[in-house]
Design a binder for these strands. Structure first.
Lengths: 238, 238
DNA sequence: CGACAAGTTGATGTTACTCAAAAGTGGTGG
DNA sequence: CCACCACTTTTGAGTAACATCAACTTGTCG
């Protein structure tokens, strides 16, 4: 459960927060220290049970997770994707009403998120911005599910993941690790895994992507972006 | 643009905030005063343009509105419903990144939302809770779009509206004013207006609802709730 | 090498979309 | 009060997108 020192990769992950707002040395230290207390969750395991009491806030150091809503008959909707650097467990709202579950889509490593109340303004600011971004992606997810075809949904999601990972873990030449199963992808995009499979095949045949052994390579981001009229990341000033 | 005194109805609307958190007399006064400055937006008109600069926060006194995302080819997705008593324009997050548009689905009356910074803790608390609720409904909207049939989507939405209006404007015997067009309903639920029409017909034939001249009557809420395994409003303890 | 999860493919069924037109509704001005 | 208009609702017929069911194949890991 504990590992001596954070890897450079994970340090980079936590620094996503630093990119969201300037942090002072005290806050950087708090983050570095937080990383020493790791917690791992195996793929397919729940990180938070749906309807559970509020847990203390955590940061995802590695792996992909998702907020989930499970139906009584077994249907599952992944409400939103949680990627390395994302906060989970909601520092954000004093009233964590939205008791959704969270599941590890791959093996996931977590660490506690430093309390922003004991910190300077910077960390609280970073959390607030992270939360604002999260809301932006929720709206995007709604538009995707409500008004896009299967083909467009996948394209739009790929662009979103690329954008979100960009700050953290983008590989060379627009390729990145894409470890999610087609089953999970289906639950995220409101489709069946069979249809996801066929649609990915179509994307490959159209020469838009190259997906092999969990590595996604986007051949031409601009072409994808045009398909879903994607405006490059709503940049926020200040 | 100004009307002398708030009607009892609208007073009741603003009091939704009072139901979310206890307010002191000073805050009640601020709310009462805010209502004197009205602003009307006709149906189909935009309240906020998509991508516009942040506007000052407002409260919906009357009418229905919706956050929107418009696609270049004309497709429209209503991201969320904004009902009387709801806040619009986001007091909530210091970083209003999510620059969605907002459209009046019916004639809408607005008033400015009192600044919570000048107020006691109560008002800020009420805003925070309102915002937490909003997030809850966003998650619900995602689950609806991603994993429910047209029939279920409408049922689930009706229960949500009933629940949200309940605090404010529920008529006698589970009937309430339901002024939204089938076109707007379609854009909200990710369907076409034709299919919404047919599905409403099915709901009527199944004896679940009675919808005449914009008045929705739910015959047996429990039956509807069973159809979508609806748990009665996530009540939040202090 | 065996076992199990994940990916792939085919055949068929269903839900929801599209196009098109008719019928209802409410508001406005003569 | 009626005639007209625009908007909304309703209905029909044909189609496309996606789901379902059921194999079979390919990886992965012990």
């Amino acid at each position: 459960m504990n590992t001596p020192s954070p890897s450079p990769f994970e340090t980079r992950v936590v620094s996503r927060l630093g990119a969201l707002a300037p942090l002072d040395t005290h806050e950087w230290e708090a983050l570095a220290e937080a990383q020493l207390v790791r917690h791992r969750v195996a793929a397919h395991r729940n990180i938070i049970e749906e309807g559970a009491r509020v847990t203390s806030p955590r940061i995802i150091l590695a792996g992909w997770a998702g907020r989930t809503r499970i139906f009584a008959d077994g249907r599952r909707q992944i409400l939103s994707l949680l990627l390395p650097g994302d906060l989970i467990g909601k520092c954000r709202q004093s009233h964590p009403l939205a008791a959704t579950g969270a599941v590890a889509l791959t093996d996931v490593t977590l660490c506690p998120a430093p309390d922003s109340r004991h910190a300077k303004h910077g960390l609280a600011e970073a959390y607030a911005r992270s939360s604002a971004l999260e809301e932006y992606y929720l709206f995007r997810q709604i538009a995707r599910l409500g008004r896009m075809s299967a083909y467009e949904r996948i394209v739009d999601l790929l662009l979103e993941v690329r954008e979100r990972l960009g700050a953290v873990a983008l590989g060379p030449k627009d390729s990145f690790h894409f470890p999610i199963t087609q089953e999970a992808l289906a639950d995220l995009l409101g489709l069946t895994s069979v249809h996801v499979n066929r649609t990915l095949k179509a994307l490959r045949q159209d020469g838009l992507i190259d997906l092999r052994s969990s590595t996604m390579h986007i051949k031409d981001p601009a072409v994808l972006a045009a398909l879903v009229e994607h405006r490059p990341a709503a940049v926020f000033e200040n």
